[in-house]
Write a protein that binds this DNA or RNA. Structure first.
Lengths: 261, 261
DNA sequence: CTCGGTTTGTTCCCACGTTCACAAACTCCT
DNA sequence: AGGAGTTTGTGAACGTGGGAACAAACCGAG
């Protein structure tokens, strides 16, 4: 096996982080201020809910209101926020604008993060045009594609450059986050190049398990996996509807010689 | 509030299911055969790894091999598979083709699921062209868009229909799964129409919390949230590098009157 | 048939995450 | 000023998930 660790594979929450801690060193470092992964994953949701509330002119809100806006339990919300500090006022609630800033600061989106997108096919186009990028603390530093035919294409107000520019772009803009939207076979090579160039966080849309060195974070977004999870539950619903049929199956599978429908 | 429950919001694993059970009824039903959510989320990953192995001509594989191919721990893999039954042979491993079928059956992708995609913008185009659809147990029954200007557009070998066709399409094809790729403001209305038409599973790409009635599953895919999670970790890495700076900040925040950089 | 080597299936234990429930703290009204 | 009503922050209980470790089962050689 290569020296890089193959710690990937979507441990239930879709993140490749080894549940916050793996090495003792990492554990100690995480303990410094440690916010649980599950909470980190919800902070952006709260942030969005707060922005919506702010746009509506709401100045203050209770944990209950914010929780329903974010689609979570109010107890969970309060516990999550308590990891950041005591930003609420008992008997009153939270100041929307203040909390919004505190969460944004904690996540790190008060500054702008330069991002490169690799693979400007259908999905790459969609990502490049996604307005949520610029409005939420991210700036597209470059669009890259290995296909020379695509180089020079205009997408939004950006030009597609050749993937060979990756080192130059990453160095020039100080890019730390890369988005991979290439076909699956190219993903690992692109990933290696990105990491070598200095990228330490990767969002992977290609349906492949990526191997990365220690210290590099990978998150995976996979349409087909999401659909399959839905299909599983859908199938169970269908079986539950025709309950007798389901029981028949179960029975049959216990009796050798009986063929399940 | 509407009568529909607002159980949404990405509980760490991105699924809106109330962690397998909420109502007592649902609990009892889940207990019938209960596969843990975390395991269900990994089955598609195993399935993909098995397909890759099969394409390479591998007839048999150990849990160790399959685990590394899927990017997980071998103990976890074995435990996951054990929920489905005993499909391996001790001292030998797993028959690739056999296990592949068993997992596909368990997930429910041995049959084809008809799917509708609503919102044929940049993202909708990308989804419609995604080859992983047809090859993995899903079939696009229709592309729908509320914008009359888009109706009649050709995407791949499908035509875009008006969203008003939703009831007809769902009824005709028996669609159970809907994909929402509209702008955020339209998402809830689209969702309501889909559910009313009979859709019971929704994959939501719009950056909004959807409210759905009991019994409808929602999974959310949100680019900007994924990026923000990466940004958080990236920020922590940066702080850890310049450790002295981090400590300075911490100190400053404890001393009133000292302005943090 | 027996024995050594291999690999699965499972048990046990620990850590993490969620939820409940309640004390502490704040506002407002009298 | 005091008390009633709210709402936060948190401690404790509970459930779920992950990983190590091991017994059971299988294969092949002798």
């Amino acid at each position: 096996m290569t020296p890089r660790s193959t710690r990937n594979g979507t441990p239930a929450d879709g993140v490749s982080r080894p549940t916050a801690a793996k090495t003792p060193a990492a554990h100690a470092r995480a303990g410094e201020r440690g916010i649980p992964e599950a909470t980190v994953a919800r902070l952006p949701v709260y942030l969005r809910a707060l922005i919506t509330l702010a746009e509506r002119g709401t100045a203050t809100c209770s944990s209950e209101e914010l929780a329903t806006a974010a689609g979570v339990n109010s107890a969970k919300l309060r516990k999550d926020l308590s990891y950041l500090g005591s930003y609420g006022t008992r008997g009153v609630g939270y100041d929307v604008e203040y909390l919004r800033y505190q969460i944004a600061r904690e996540i790190g989106v008060t500054q702008d993060w330069p991002v490169v997108i690799v693979g400007i096919g259908n999905l790459g186009h969609a990502l490049a045009n996604y307005s949520g990028f610029s409005s939420r603390g991210f700036r597209i530093a470059a669009l890259l594609d290995a296909d020379p035919a695509r180089a020079g294409d205009r997408v939004g107000d950006l030009l597609v450059s050749d993937f060979d520019q990756v080192e130059a772009v990453v160095a020039e803009h100080g890019v730390a986050i890369g988005v991979i939207a290439t076909p699956a076979p190219a993903a690992q090579d692109v990933c290696d190049r990105l990491v070598a160039a200095g990228v330490t966080s990767i969002l992977n849309f290609a349906p492949t398990v990526l191997s990365v060195p220690e210290g590099v974070d990978v998150r995976k977004v996979d349409l087909s996996i999401e659909l399959q999870i839905l299909a599983y539950h859908e199938q169970r619903k269908a079986l539950a509807d025709g309950r007798a049929v389901g029981l028949l199956d179960e029975l049959a599978s216990d009796l050798p010689g009986v063929v399940a429908r």
